[in-house]
Amino acid sequence: MSRKSFPFRSTGGDLRDLDHPGYYAGLSTLAQKRSWDEATRRAVTERVEKTPPIRFFSEPEAALLDAVIDRLLPQDDRSEARTIPILPVIDERLFKNALNGFRYENMPPDQEAYRLGIKAIDEMARSRFKQHFVELTVHRQELILKSLHDGQPDPEHAVWRRIPVHRFWALLMEDCVTAYYAHPWAWDEIGFGGPAYPRGYMRLENGLPEPWEKHEQRYDWNAPADSLSVLDEQGAPPEHGSLHGHGGSH
């Protein structure tokens, strides 16, 4: 199955094949790489040019997780050539068993959590809609995933008694954003200036762009109108007791 889920009636949106989504037309962080230091240039260039092979997940598992990722961090508006790889980055982390320094006492190790979690997602799809997750309409896929997001798996599945669903959700989401927002194309999308050594930044206040950055040019942005993953202004997440951020800040 292709990554593209549109045009799909249930999402309705008119998503264009964009090389550069976001409000910063013309911004290219990569075009600045002459101003970066050697080590950074190497790390970022490699990220863009080399996509790691799938080694941890089996083929069906990879297809399944890929379909899940397409809904967790949809890229339907991006052109095929400008799609940011997420699955291969997660696969590589799990293949190398690269840890993030801790595990919740009620969570299995990451490798196991992934295998069990995505299997459960597929079984939920089969029991609710009599189809594999990858075969579901986008809307139905979102229904399943939204129930995990809300912490109320529908239908219930034994795995979620073993793995706290909000922890699994956080694991999945954090791995997705770690791949996506580490990519220079995503920096161009959100207007982040990117690496800045040895040149540095000069315009610190008032949101001013550096000479090589771009001004924001806003336009009405078209997420599929009936997607379940649009922001719900009232929908601050339920306090999961202890779901909290994992990034360092101060």
Binding site: Y23, L73, M173, T178, S227
Partner: peptide, 27 residues
């Protein structure tokens, strides 16, 4: 960006298109 995205997951329950759109407002 990565740390901010994680914050938006925790603070707003952002995912999917909602996450993409709030991240476009990063600045």
């Amino acid at each position: 960006p990565v740390a901010f995205a994680k914050q938006m997951i925790a603070a707003m329950g952002a995912w999917g298109w909602g996450l993409r759109s709030v991240m476009m407002d990063y600045n």
